[in-house]
Design a protein around this nucleic acid. Structure first.
Lengths: 210, 210
DNA sequence: GCTGTAAGGGAACAACTGTTCTACAGGAGG
DNA sequence: CCTCCTGTAGAACAGTTGTTCCCTTACAGC
């Protein structure tokens, strides 16, 4: 069943990967012919059939550039990088207006990290106020747009009277809300429910080292 | 110059994004006609010209599915997730043999995080021995395959005599090597240069919250 | 009313492209 | 020798696809 690939077939697989890396779209059959120095489209077709049978790729019949390499392009989403969040600075709120109008800076994100979360956006963290939650200065956090969070979850909140935004752990207490910085050097703050507006909760963290 | 997009044009842009998310390849002009309920390909062409002029997309002339959305598909790589790393457990070493043979589990990664690093692979971290480096249990670390690291960099090292692998900060001292766990509860270990084999150094961290 | 512009409609052309059909060469196995 | 299989060639067909040409409609400004 799992035969070894001939040299031609390896060459073709490699070419297709290369082409997709370079061009961003799959090649046509004739692109393969040219790229691999084949003499006829039927040779390409012949080998593509085999490669499909061997599970190296899939072909969508009668569709131009219908070759699919397993796990290519799929499962990747772009989320808007709305800006930076620092204690004291306002977040650029994701209005439904601005949502699809302006061409914003975006971050590419593995879909696995987003899951089914809706309305995901990204913020770059400034400062070390979340250091105990293992979030460092310069990290990028992914948030999902929501108005409600559960106790202990990390959320971006807007404090109306102070006119500032922070990233904190959220705890609903009897009459008020405790916002706990994930940094043992900082003390928690208590605010009234009327004063807070949840802007989203953290679903993932991305960090580049070095 | 930067005119507002008409409703049609917004609809078309949205359709193209949608289509690419769904299908993984750009639509043809006639896909757009069908998807947007247009009556003629010339209407699509007319609006595509405008969208190109306004910088919303690019078109490669005479090439089927030649529409490019800025930053789509580009900059995403898949790296093999070779397994888990825990203090004491061996890493499945990325041999050049296994490199292209077995269909391994992979992780999708924004290329921005990888940069030009070659031979990148991923490991899932077990345990909290790297907690002070802001790496938690369950996080995924991206490593680049290298034999040499600079002082203070985080590296996956293989200890020959102990037959175990760990993720530690690496410090070359006079005659020996100090491996510093990024956890203040754990003490560093010193080993002889002959006993260590660097398997790669950490270039990025991915964490999923919740 | 006249004119210019934006937007849409219909049709056609020419090139592109997936697919198929036939033929040929070489080797393995009988 | 014959047959079967693999791999390669060349050509052709039909559907797909980017592009273009010409016409129509709506509307604002004059």
């Amino acid at each position: 069943m799992a035969k070894e690939l001939s040299q031609r077939q390896q060459q073709i697989v490699e070419f297709i990967s290369h082409y997709m890396d370079e061009e961003g779209i799959p090649p046509t059959v004739r692109d393969i012919v040219r790229g691999c120095g084949l003499s006829s489209t039927s040779v390409a077709d012949y080998n593509l059939r085999i490669l499909e049978r061997e599970g190296q790729l899939r072909r969508r019949p009668d569709i131009s550039r219908g070759i699919e390499m397993p796990g290519w392009g799929r499962g990747v989403t772009r989320v808007p990088l709305l800006g930076a969040i620092a204690a004291g600075a306002p977040i650029p709120v994701p209005d439904t207006d601005t949502w699809q109008s302006a061409p914003l800076e975006t971050v590419e994100v593995p879909a696995e990290m987003v899951g089914r979360a809706q309305g995901v956006y990204a913020l770059r963290v400034k400062g070390t106020s979340m250091i105990d939650a293992l979030i460092d200065d310069g990290d990028v956090v992914l948030l999902t747009l929501t108005r409600t969070v559960n106790n202990g979850e990390m959320a971006a909140v807007w404090l109306k009277s102070e006119k500032e935004a922070t990233l904190k752990r959220f705890y609903q207490e009897k009459r008020r809300i405790r916002l706990q910085p994930a940094n043992s050097a900082l003390s928690p703050m208590w605010v009234s429910p009327q004063n807070v507006e949840v802007q989203g909760k953290v679903v993932a963290v991305l960090r580049r080292v070095g």
